[in-house]
Simulated scan of single mutants.
Amino acid sequence: MQIKRDDLSGPEIAALLEAHLADFAPHSPPESRHALDLSALRHPDIFFYSVWEAGELLGCGAFKRLDATHAELKSMRTDAQHLRRGVARALLTHLIDEARAAGFERLSLETGSAAHFDPAHRLYAAFGFETCGPFGDYVEDPYSVFMTRRL
Protein backbone atom coordinates (compact mmCIF):
# COMPACT_ATOMS: atom_id res chain seq x y z
CA MET A 1 0.00 0.00 0.00
CA GLN A 2 1.17 3.48 -0.87
CA ILE A 3 -0.34 6.54 0.83
CA LYS A 4 0.21 9.87 -0.86
CA ARG A 5 -0.93 13.47 -0.62
CA ASP A 6 -3.58 13.84 -3.30
CA ASP A 7 -4.65 16.86 -5.34
CA LEU A 8 -8.18 15.45 -5.85
CA SER A 9 -7.92 15.65 -9.63
CA GLY A 10 -8.32 11.98 -10.54
CA PRO A 11 -11.60 10.41 -11.62
CA GLU A 12 -11.07 7.54 -9.15
CA ILE A 13 -11.09 9.97 -6.22
CA ALA A 14 -14.21 11.71 -7.55
CA ALA A 15 -16.03 8.37 -7.82
CA LEU A 16 -14.97 7.23 -4.34
CA LEU A 17 -16.09 10.52 -2.79
CA GLU A 18 -19.45 10.30 -4.59
CA ALA A 19 -19.91 6.81 -3.13
CA HIS A 20 -18.91 8.19 0.28
CA LEU A 21 -21.59 10.88 0.18
CA ALA A 22 -24.25 8.52 -1.19
CA ASP A 23 -23.57 6.02 1.58
CA PHE A 24 -24.73 8.48 4.25
CA ALA A 25 -28.06 9.39 2.66
CA PRO A 26 -30.13 6.56 4.19
CA HIS A 27 -28.69 7.09 7.69
CA SER A 28 -29.23 10.77 8.46
CA PRO A 29 -31.17 13.78 7.21
CA PRO A 30 -29.37 16.27 4.94
CA GLU A 31 -28.85 18.83 7.73
CA SER A 32 -26.97 16.19 9.75
CA ARG A 33 -24.55 15.15 7.00
CA HIS A 34 -21.19 16.83 7.40
CA ALA A 35 -19.11 15.05 4.76
CA LEU A 36 -17.42 17.41 2.31
CA ASP A 37 -17.81 17.20 -1.45
CA LEU A 38 -14.93 17.30 -3.89
CA SER A 39 -14.82 21.09 -4.24
CA ALA A 40 -14.95 21.66 -0.45
CA LEU A 41 -12.07 19.21 0.04
CA ARG A 42 -9.87 21.39 -2.19
CA HIS A 43 -9.65 24.04 0.55
CA PRO A 44 -6.06 25.00 1.50
CA ASP A 45 -6.67 24.05 5.16
CA ILE A 46 -7.43 20.44 4.16
CA PHE A 47 -4.69 17.82 3.87
CA PHE A 48 -6.10 15.04 1.65
CA TYR A 49 -4.49 11.61 1.16
CA SER A 50 -5.25 8.58 -0.97
CA VAL A 51 -4.23 4.94 -0.61
CA TRP A 52 -3.11 3.00 -3.70
CA GLU A 53 -1.91 -0.46 -4.57
CA ALA A 54 -0.92 -1.64 -8.03
CA GLY A 55 -2.53 1.42 -9.60
CA GLU A 56 -5.86 0.87 -7.84
CA LEU A 57 -7.44 3.30 -5.40
CA LEU A 58 -8.12 1.58 -2.06
CA GLY A 59 -9.27 4.50 0.08
CA CYS A 60 -8.92 8.10 1.11
CA GLY A 61 -8.97 10.41 4.10
CA ALA A 62 -8.10 13.90 5.18
CA PHE A 63 -7.70 16.25 8.06
CA LYS A 64 -8.80 19.87 8.22
CA ARG A 65 -7.10 22.63 10.19
CA LEU A 66 -9.56 24.04 12.73
CA ASP A 67 -6.98 26.26 14.46
CA ALA A 68 -3.24 26.23 15.14
CA THR A 69 -3.39 23.15 17.37
CA HIS A 70 -6.62 21.34 16.46
CA ALA A 71 -7.51 19.42 13.29
CA GLU A 72 -10.53 17.37 12.24
CA LEU A 73 -10.55 14.06 10.39
CA LYS A 74 -12.62 14.21 7.20
CA SER A 75 -13.64 11.88 4.38
CA MET A 76 -12.27 8.59 5.73
CA ARG A 77 -13.38 6.01 3.19
CA THR A 78 -12.28 2.55 2.08
CA ASP A 79 -13.45 1.36 -1.32
CA ALA A 80 -16.07 -1.38 -0.84
CA GLN A 81 -13.91 -3.89 -2.76
CA HIS A 82 -11.06 -3.43 -0.27
CA LEU A 83 -12.79 -3.63 3.11
CA ARG A 84 -11.15 -5.63 5.89
CA ARG A 85 -7.69 -5.44 4.33
CA GLY A 86 -6.21 -2.92 6.76
CA VAL A 87 -6.69 0.10 4.51
CA ALA A 88 -8.46 2.21 7.15
CA ARG A 89 -5.94 1.30 9.86
CA ALA A 90 -2.98 2.17 7.63
CA LEU A 91 -4.60 5.41 6.55
CA LEU A 92 -5.60 6.46 10.07
CA THR A 93 -2.07 5.78 11.30
CA HIS A 94 -0.73 7.92 8.46
CA LEU A 95 -3.20 10.76 9.11
CA ILE A 96 -2.35 10.83 12.82
CA ASP A 97 1.37 10.92 12.02
CA GLU A 98 0.91 13.67 9.41
CA ALA A 99 -1.28 15.78 11.72
CA ARG A 100 1.29 15.44 14.51
CA ALA A 101 4.12 16.38 12.09
CA ALA A 102 2.10 19.44 10.98
CA GLY A 103 2.10 20.63 14.60
CA PHE A 104 -1.42 19.75 15.65
CA GLU A 105 -1.95 18.69 19.25
CA ARG A 106 -5.51 17.39 18.98
CA LEU A 107 -7.40 15.48 16.30
CA SER A 108 -11.20 15.26 16.42
CA LEU A 109 -13.93 13.83 14.22
CA GLU A 110 -17.65 13.72 13.63
CA THR A 111 -19.31 10.58 12.32
CA GLY A 112 -22.80 9.14 12.20
CA SER A 113 -24.58 7.65 15.19
CA ALA A 114 -26.51 4.91 13.34
CA ALA A 115 -25.46 1.25 13.64
CA HIS A 116 -24.10 1.57 10.09
CA PHE A 117 -21.20 3.56 11.58
CA ASP A 118 -20.32 1.08 14.35
CA PRO A 119 -17.22 -0.22 12.50
CA ALA A 120 -15.92 3.36 12.31
CA HIS A 121 -16.63 3.91 16.02
CA ARG A 122 -14.65 0.77 16.88
CA LEU A 123 -11.75 1.77 14.63
CA TYR A 124 -11.48 5.24 16.14
CA ALA A 125 -11.75 3.90 19.70
CA ALA A 126 -8.96 1.41 18.96
CA PHE A 127 -6.77 4.39 18.00
CA GLY A 128 -7.44 6.20 21.27
CA PHE A 129 -10.28 8.47 20.20
CA GLU A 130 -12.80 9.13 22.96
CA THR A 131 -16.35 10.41 22.76
CA CYS A 132 -16.61 14.15 23.34
CA GLY A 133 -19.02 17.00 22.81
CA PRO A 134 -19.37 19.06 19.65
CA PHE A 135 -16.31 21.05 18.58
CA GLY A 136 -15.72 23.76 16.00
CA ASP A 137 -19.01 24.81 14.42
CA TYR A 138 -20.85 21.58 15.29
CA VAL A 139 -23.88 21.46 17.59
CA GLU A 140 -25.46 18.55 19.47
CA ASP A 141 -27.21 16.29 16.99
CA PRO A 142 -28.74 12.86 17.59
CA TYR A 143 -27.31 11.77 14.21
CA SER A 144 -23.72 12.64 15.17
CA VAL A 145 -21.02 11.10 17.33
CA PHE A 146 -18.06 13.32 18.20
CA MET A 147 -14.68 11.89 19.15
CA THR A 148 -11.26 13.35 19.91
CA ARG A 149 -7.72 12.42 20.95
CA ARG A 150 -4.55 14.24 21.89
CA LEU A 151 -1.58 13.80 19.58
Rank of each mutant, 00 (worst) to 15 (best):
A88V: 01
T93I: 00
M76P: 02
D79Q: 02
R89G: 11
L91D: 02
L57P: 07
D79H: 15
G61W: 02
A71I: 04
G55F: 03
M76V: 11
S50R: 08
A68H: 05
L92A: 09
H70Y: 11
E56I: 13
S108T: 14
F104G: 01
A71T: 08
R85Q: 15
F63Q: 06
R84W: 00
H70M: 11
H94C: 08
W52S: 10
A71G: 13
L58H: 11
H70C: 14
A80R: 14
D45M: 04
E105R: 15
H43S: 15
E105F: 04
M76G: 09
L92T: 07
L109I: 12
A62V: 06
L83R: 15
A80G: 06
K64I: 03
W52H: 14
R85T: 05
M76F: 01
A102D: 11
Y49D: 03
L83H: 14
G86V: 07
L91F: 02
E53W: 00
P44V: 03
S108P: 09
T69H: 12
L92I: 08
G103P: 05
H94T: 09
F47K: 05
T111S: 12
K64Y: 05
I96R: 12
H43M: 08
A54E: 14
R77M: 10
D97G: 13
V87M: 07
A71E: 09
T111K: 01
L95N: 04
G103F: 05
D79V: 01
L107Q: 12
E98T: 06
R85V: 02
G112A: 01
L73M: 13
H94Q: 10
P44H: 10
E56N: 11
T78G: 01
G55D: 04
R100C: 12
F48G: 00
P44A: 06
L66Q: 12
A99K: 09
H70G: 00
H82Y: 15
S113K: 04
A88K: 00
T69W: 07
E110H: 06
L58D: 03
L91V: 06
A99F: 06
G61S: 09
E98S: 13
L83K: 14
R89V: 11
T111V: 02
A68S: 10
F63C: 06
R100V: 13
I46P: 05
R65K: 15
L73G: 04
E53T: 02
A80F: 04
V51D: 03
G103Y: 05
Q81G: 10
A88R: 01
E56T: 15
L57E: 03
A80Q: 14
E53N: 11
R65A: 14
R65F: 00
S50M: 05
G59M: 07
L109E: 03
E110C: 11
T69C: 04
G61H: 03
C60A: 15
I46T: 12
L66C: 12
G55P: 03
G59L: 07
E53H: 12
H82P: 03
R106F: 10
L92Q: 09
Y49N: 05
